[in-house]
C-alpha cells in the first residue's frame, strides 16, 4: 500500500468509528441523563448540574414515590392484561386470515388484501373522531375489553409477516395431511400453527412494544382504574411540574420492560422489523 492509500484506508476506519460512537452517544445521552437525575434527591437535583453523577446509585426513593403516587403497580398490571390479550388476539386473528389468504384462491382474496393494505394509509388518530362515536354507542368506553378489541383491530403488518411465513411452508404438507383425512382446522391448528413459531415471536414483539407504548387511544377510551403505563406517565404533566427527578424516575421505570425485551430478543426484533417493512 502506498502512503496515500494507507491514509485513505485508516481515514475511512476513523470516520466509521467516529460516526458510530458519536451517534450512539447522541442516542444514549437523553436517556442516560434522565437515569442520572432519577437517582438524585430533591436537594441534590436543585443544587447540582444535571450531568453531575448522583451521590448514591442506590437512592431508589424517587422510584418508590412515583410508584405510589402514580399508582404504577396498577398501571403495569393493566398494561400487562392489555398486552396479553392484544398480542394473543393479534397472533390468532393475523395467522388465521394469513392462512386463508395464502392457501386458498377464492373470489375476493385480492379484494381483502387491498382492503387491509388501504387501511394502512388511513392515519388512525385522524379517524378517532368517528371511532369515538362508535365506541361510545356500543359501550366500549371505559372498559379494558373495549380498548383491547379496538387495538386488535387492523394489524396489517402482522398479517403480512404471517403471509410471508406461510409462503415458505410447502403446500405439500397440507396436502398430505388432507389425504390422511385431516380437516382444514386440524391442518391449521395441529400442523401449521406450531410451525409459525418464529413469525409469532416477531409479531408478538412488534405488536407488544406498540401496544405497551400506545397512549392516544388509551387516553380516549380508558380512565382512572383502567389506566395503562403510558397514561400513568402522562399524569405527571400537571402536578409534578418541573420535578424532573421524579418524572425521570417514572420515565426510566416505564422503559425497563422494553429494555428487557430488547436485550433478550434483539435478533428477532431486527429481522421482524425488516420482514414487516419489506412486505408491508
Amino acid at each position: 500500500m502506498t502512503i496515500f492509500q494507507k491514509i485513505k484506508h485508516y481515514g475511512w476506519i476513523f470516520i466509521q468509528y467516529f460516526s458510530l460512537i458519536f451517534f450512539s452517544f447522541v442516542a444514549l445521552l437523553p436517556v442516560v441523563s434522565c437515569l442520572i437525575t432519577a437517582f438524585k434527591t430533591k436537594e441534590e437535583y436543585e443544587t447540582t448540574n444535571v450531568m453531575t453523577l448522583p451521590q448514591s446509585w442506590l437512592n431508589f426513593r424517587n422510584f418508590i414515590q412515583v410508584w405510589e403516587d402514580a399508582d404504577m403497580g396498577r398501571a403495569f398490571f393493566n398494561s400487562a392484561i392489555v398486552l396479553v390479550f392484544v398480542v394473543a388476539g393479534s397472533v390468532m386473528v393475523g395467522s388465521m386470515i394469513a392462512y386463508v389468504l395464502n392457501r386458498f384462491t377464492f373470489p375476493g382474496n385480492g379484494l381483502i388484501r387491498s382492503l387491509f393494505l388501504f387501511a394502512t394509509l388511513l392515519p388512525g388518530i385522524a379517524m378517532q373522531v368517528a371511532t369515538y362515536q362508535l365506541m361510545y354507542q356500543i359501550g366500549f368506553i371505559n372498559h379494558l375489553y373495549g380498548y383491547i378489541i379496538l387495538s386488535m383491530g387492523t394489524d396489517v403488518i402482522s398479517i403480512y409477516i404471517f403471509i410471508q411465513f406461510f409462503e415458505n411452508i410447502p403446500v405439500s404438507l397440507d396436502e398430505s395431511a388432507f389425504m390422511d383425512g385431516a380437516s382444514y382446522f386440524t391442518i391449521f391448528f395441529k400442523i401449521l400453527f406450531p410451525l409459525l413459531k418464529p413469525a409469532m415471536v416477531t409479531v408478538m414483539i412488534l405488536k407488544g412494544v406498540g401496544t405497551y407504548n400506545e397512549y392516544y387511544n388509551a387516553s380516549l377510551y380508558l380512565t382512572g382504574e383502567q389506566k395503562t403505563v403510558s397514561m400513568a406517565l402522562y399524569t405527571f404533566v400537571g402536578p409534578l411540574g418541573s420535578q424532573f427527578n421524579l418524572i425521570c424516575a417514572g420515565a426510566i421505570m416505564s422503559l425497563i420492560p422494553a429494555l428487557v425485551v430488547f436485550l433478550i430478543f434483539q435478533k428477532q426484533i431486527y429481522s421482524g422489523m425488516t420482514a414487516g417493512a419489506v412486505k408491508g
Binding site: 437523553p30 407504548n213 403510558s230 406517565l233 402522562y234 418524572i247 425521570c248 417514572g250 430488547f262
Partner: peptide, 17 residues
C-alpha cells in the same frame, strides 16, 4: 433502542433535555 421507548416517556425525557 430509542425506537422502543414510550412516546410519553420520550416527551418527558426531552422536556428535561
Amino acid at each position: 433502542f430509542p425506537y422502543l421507548i414510550n412516546g410519553i416517556a420520550i416527551g418527558f425525557i426531552f422536556k428535561f433535555f
